[in-house]
């Protein structure tokens, strides 16, 4: 009914958080690098703001296509109150229940996938760093 509103709200929060963190990283002069760019003297770590953008992209991407699905099914309309379920109290209760179950699970699963991506990324960064230090020791 309106389960998509939960991940959309999370997307909004993460978008703002990513912008704030990116600004802070720029102020602190953290080196921007991408995975695989292991130039000598450069960090191979990906900035956290970039990692947070992965979550933001996934949340917005999913939310946009799911909003379209809700429009397709007539659950979201382009006029007030925008949600067809909002015009009837019984439907509103059902909608809120769906948001608290399906919507929250959607947001949690996407966040869990992102955490998994962070874990893999962190392992790859550590491996790249140890390889870079081993190369340095060899050349020294």
């Amino acid at each position: 009914m309106a389960c998509v509103l939960v991940p959309a709200a999370e997307a909004l929060v993460t978008t703002i958080a990513a912008k704030v963190i990116e600004k802070k990283e720029k102020d602190h002069g953290e080196v921007k690098s991408t995975a695989g760019s292991s130039d000598a003297g450069h960090s191979v770590k990906i900035p956290f703001s970039k990692k947070l953008k992965w979550l933001t992209n996934m949340l917005w991407g999913g939310a946009v296509l799911l909003i379209y699905e809700h429009v397709w099914h007539g659950e979201i309309v382009p006029w007030f109150p925008f949600l067809t379920a909002a015009s009837d109290p019984a439907d509103t209760a059902e909608m809120l229940h769906e948001m608290s179950t399906v919507g929250v699970t959607m947001a949690l699963l996407i966040t869990a996938v992102w955490v998994g991506m962070l874990a893999v990324c962190s392992a790859m960064e550590k491996r790249a760093e140890s390889e870079a230090s081993a190369d340095k020791e060899e050349t020294a």
């Binding site: 999913g62 296509l65 959607m106």
Partner: peptide, 20 residues
């Protein structure tokens, strides 16, 4: 990459929908 984010995001959300 834009397409990947769009389709993976929606796939995960529809997967949850399907499970329920």
């Amino acid at each position: 990459g834009v397409l990947c984010w769009l389709y993976w995001g929606s796939s995960i959300m529809w997967f949850v929908d399907a499970v329920f």
